[in-house]
Design a protein around this nucleic acid. Structure first.
Ligand SMILES: [Mn+2]
Ligand SMILES: [Mn+2]
Ligand SMILES: [Zn+2]
Ligand SMILES: [Zn+2]
Lengths: 179, 179
DNA sequence: CCAATTATTGAAACAGTTTGCATAAACAAA
DNA sequence: TTTGTTTATGCAAACTGTTTCAATAATTGG
């Protein structure tokens, strides 16, 4: 019984071994300290394959340890970004989201302004053309951010149905004031 | 003398005739009213060919009429955007900039993270590829936002000089954490 | 001119994020 | 271990850009 628990916890700790090593290394290299809350936040982040706001992550972490504060989550997400484990993503609603960076290919996003769905895509051709453009202006690009806003397939379908039946009633509109 | 003044003021009012008509039309169509502050804000906006934050514009307007409030500038910029005269631009520092939209071609931006310089560019190929990408995902694009962050030619030059001479001292770094 | 409607204003509210500070936890030296 | 030094934490308060509120002012149409 105890053995099983140990086994479970063991597997839990095994799971993202590489990422955790990277984090530890970054922690040490920066003269910081390993703490329970940092470990937990990293753990929860790693097993959530999604675009998470600091608050999203905060609530997930809360469920497992109600003593972790918002500020710590903010601070830890910054650390994870520095360590190369997380990447900041702006989807256009004013908050900052984070996604996995380690072992994840670069990509850009399409965002549905009706339902908020996020589609990830990558185009080597676009990337190439961006570099060409930069070169033309003697500009040395470090990174970029490409967002395509519009209506996802699902929402297009619903739109069609609704416009036929009742007097077109728009659904929950996602706030995309844009950032 | 008076004639001259009238002439000057006349030319001033002639200057952006088309834009002003569009604005008036929008005002009327929306059941709003033409006011001195709206006229002034539009005027100042139109003669400033730049990426202006609401606050930037506020200060410019202040110089000509100290009785215009920030709030009015915010609201008027929103009106201008609705009317198709202005376009919102996020350069990545958390604030919203506005640029001329009427009679101005669509373009995207390169932003120097050293000095903040903004380079406008347009690539029909990139636009085309974006549409193809969207189509592939059955996504109906309405607009997009492409930013290339990096170092402008001028800053690259300075970097080179400095790294040769003194112990590389970075210049004013523009805050581009955000958005 | 009056009454009703609508706009403007500065101040206060707001959201997301950051900072200051007192306390707690890490960790290395003894 | 115990101790001492340094860092992390969580809370509250500060901050930034923007929006809302409530009172005042301006405009309109009778
Ligand atoms: Mn993503
Ligand atoms: Mn521009
Ligand atoms: Zn959708
Ligand atoms: Zn530069």
């Amino acid at each position: 019984m105890v053995k099983e628990m140990v086994a479970v916890m063991g597997s839990k700790t095994e799971e993202f071994k590489e990422e955790k090593e990277i984090f530890l290394e970054h922690i040490q290299k920066s003269g910081l300290r390993r703490t329970a809350q940092r470990d937990l936040i990293l753990e929860v982040f790693l097993r959530t394959e999604d675009h998470l706001s600091s608050e999203d992550l905060y609530w997930l972490v809360q469920k497992e340890d109600p003593n972790v504060g918002q500020t710590t989550v903010y601070r830890t997400l910054k650390l994870l970004t520095e360590a190369g484990l997380a990447r900041e993503v702006r989807l256009g609603d004013g908050r900052t989201y984070y996604e996995h960076h380690f072992d994840h290919e670069h990509h850009d996003h399409m965002i549905c302004t009706e339902c908020g769905e996020v589609i990830e895509f990558f185009s080597a051709e676009i990337e190439e053309l961006q570099d060409q453009m930069a070169e033309k202006f003697n500009f040395k690009p470090t990174h970029h951010s490409l967002r395509i806003l519009g209506i996802c397939g699902e929402c297009q379908k619903l739109e069609r149905e609704q416009s036929v039946a009742s007097g077109a009633q728009p659904r929950v509109r996602v706030k995309t004031t844009l950032n």
